[in-house]
Design a protein around this nucleic acid. Structure first.
Lengths: 163, 163
DNA sequence: GAAAAATGCTTTAAGCTTAAAAATTCTAAG
DNA sequence: CTTAGAATTTTTAAGCTTAAAGCATTTTTC
């Protein structure tokens, strides 16, 4: 009877494990929704793909350019992946490859003037889109969420917990 | 002098717009880190891709199966995308296609007994992985975050704000 | 200094992803 | 009924993504 009441009268509190799974699913769905929206607008308004935009955003922070490996690590994508994206950006003349003098294995990549100009325009629009998409979050909420998510990815990549 | 002090003595409080952009980047990076980890483990331990796992998870909730369009909407991926994933799951005999009687355009997809059994095993491991990866979040934090993220994706897809 | 290991990048094969177009079937309007 | 439009799925072309293998170069080790 007690058991019947417990299981019937109210939701059994989901286990912490289940709750974390639920959290992961929310994070994933939120990310996908925002990504889809941003990708679509980049494509329609600027004719650029999201990965291309991501690369340009990474390069914009480093006026001296980055190596392929630095890009790959920063964007958290495989190294081979970056090659193709850069190939296309180079043929669009938005970024340029140049061999550094000190290490003949490496290759340095940077925005061309044209790439920088294009990115500046796009970045402004992009920030507006995200601002609109996340308009439900005020400054305090955003801060809290950022603090919660901050380091999460770092912690995971340094050995999530056990395993 | 006042201006110089304001801009020099402390960080200028980032604008709300910038803070939301920062939040978006954290969400994205967290999602990528978790995804990479889960993908790798699914591949190594079960020989399954993440999209395949996602499809099986969707189907497991619906014993009567789902149509391709239902799957596509639920997973938030394009319809053509689902076709290929299902093709491979079918050739692995983990899901089966069957034509519904009432609508000859549609196609119903469901887990095979083998697919259900395999998914049950994987789901248990998967929940453990996520539990470990998100072990920094206690129940209260998870609740808060879930509440914050909840509906976000829904709101976005129904017209984010303006635009 | 030569061999071994590590690093940086590209290539390859397989699979995922999207948008757009095509093929089929259903529904609705006249 | 017939036809126009909508809905469901697949196909196509282009690009993204990964893991693994291959090449070239640099660094480490003996």
């Amino acid at each position: 009877m007690t058991i019947a009441m417990r299981t019937k009268s109210r939701q059994p509190a989901p286990s912490l494990s289940k709750q974390r799974l639920r959290l992961w699913i929310r994070i994933l769905r939120a990310a996908r929704a925002i990504e889809a929206e941003v990708r679509e607008r980049l494509r329609v308004e600027f004719g650029v793909t999201l990965p291309q935009f991501d690369v340009m955003a990474a390069l914009e922070r480093k006026p001296d350019g980055m190596t392929m490996t630095e890009l790959s690590r920063f964007l958290m994508v495989s190294n081979g992946n970056v090659t193709g994206i850069i190939d296309r950006l180079v043929s669009d003349k938005l970024v340029a490859r140049q061999a550094p003098a000190d290490d003949r294995r490496a290759i340095n990549v940077r925005l061309t003037p044209r790439g920088l100009k294009g990115f500046t325009t796009m970045a402004k629009a992009h920030q507006g889109w995200v601002d609109g998409l996340l308009s439900d979050f005020d400054a305090a909420e955003a801060d809290t969420l950022i603090r919660h998510l901050d380091g999460l990815s770092g912690r995971i990549r340094n050995g999530g917990s056990r395993a």
